[in-house]
């Protein structure tokens, strides 16, 4: 990526890396003193990066999870899915590009892949409505999940949304009902469902695609009932308290694994998925592959029962 965006807290790392670049440009072959200096600076930058990412605050993780350089649905599909064949429309009202889905081959196995797409530039962001789906998006997801079930294909979902779209048309067409039906469908399928929270897992709009047998979550992704900003403005009466809200809400993968809301944390490359998107995608691919290997071939009723029992028990065990 040529135009790399640094987050605020990455500034010290950015400065070091810029310095390394400058020195490199000045360096003559065999100039041992500068080479030595460069090596030292590089080591320092690397150490700082590791240290920073080893103890990101929940608010920093929220920013990382929203980083525009993180891989998106289309990147994952391009890297991990062959023969991808997008399917469109809810057969009731329209096509919603905020949720994309289709048939494809994941590591040789035919699957149904469904996920939020936020878009990567202004034009595609508008087309995908920044990954904020309307009822037709969730109704399409239901249609595709039922299709997968009919042909015994496992369902893989990639969750990355700030939330379902709050708008007049969305309410008019039953946003709440569409979300409820999508969650219900996830919980009803007789095929394996593997969900991965790859960026932002925003509220009902996320859970509608994430009531899965296995819920994977990237190391620096977030999954929450409301955005930290929304929570801060309601409970603290000030959007400036977003940092406090992010900490209080326990929205990190580490917290959520402890609370048994998610099953597996997927490690990100040092410096986050946006620094080395390919490495991040491959690691996620491995985790999805492993989850599918555990689930494919299981009895449909058992898959359904175990999935339901998991959610029925959630939060019930002593925490």
């Amino acid at each position: 990526m040529s135009l790399y965006t640094f987050l605020d807290f990455e500034k010290p790392i950015a400065e070091l890396e810029t310095k390394v670049k400058e020195l490199r440009a000045l360096m003559q072959p065999g100039d041992l003193s500068i080479e030595d200096e460069v090596a030292k600076l590089e080591a320092k930058a690397d150490q700082l990066l590791r240290q920073t990412y080893a103890r990101l605050s929940p608010w920093q993780k929220t920013q990382v999870a929203r980083h525009q350089g993180r891989p998106h649905f289309r990147d994952y599909v391009a890297r991990l899915v062959d023969d991808f064949t997008p399917l469109a429309g809810d057969r009731m009202f329209g096509e919603d590009a905020a949720i994309v889905g289709g048939l494809g081959r994941f590591r040789g196995r035919a699957v149904m892949v469904i996920g939020h797409e936020k878009g990567a530039d202004t034009e595609s962001r508008l087309r995908h409505n920044f990954g904020m789906a309307k009822p037709e998006g969730y109704r399409k997801a239901v249609r595709l999940m039922r299709l997968a079930e009919r042909f015994r294909l496992p369902v893989v979902t990639l969750v990355d949304t700030a939330g379902a779209y709050p708008g007049i048309g969305a309410e008019e067409r039953g946003q709440a009902e569409a979300i409820a039906r999508s969650t219900e469908c996830c919980l009803d399928l007789g095929v394996p469902v593997v969900a991965a929270i790859v960026g932002e897992g925003g509220s009902g709009g996320a859970v509608a695609l994430a009531a899965a047998n296995r819920v994977l979550m990237f190391e620096h992704a977030v999954y929450s009932v409301i955005s930290p900003e929304g929570c801060a403005s309601i409970l603290w009466h000030s959007a400036e308290k977003s940092q406090d809200a992010a900490s209080a809400m326990k929205l990190t993968a580490q917290d959520l694994q402890r609370l048994k809301v998610i099953d597996t944390i997927v490690a990100e490359p040092v410096g986050g998925a946006h620094r080395s998107p390919r490495e991040a995608m491959d690691t996620l691919g491995d985790s999805i592959g492993q989850a599918l290997n555990e689930l494919v071939g299981r009895d449909p009723m058992a898959l359904k029962r175990e999935r339901r029992e998991k959610f029925l028990e959630m939060g019930r065990v002593a925490i």
Binding site: V207, I234, L235, A248, K250, M314, G315
Partner: peptide, 22 residues
């Protein structure tokens, strides 16, 4: 809506109550 003070555990009550209904 959901009880924000219980964070993602309150979000998980959406699938949980859905199972109850099913």
């Amino acid at each position: 809506g959901a009880r924000m003070q219980e964070g993602t555990l309150s979000l998980m009550q959406m699938p949980r109550t859905t199972v109850a209904v099913q």
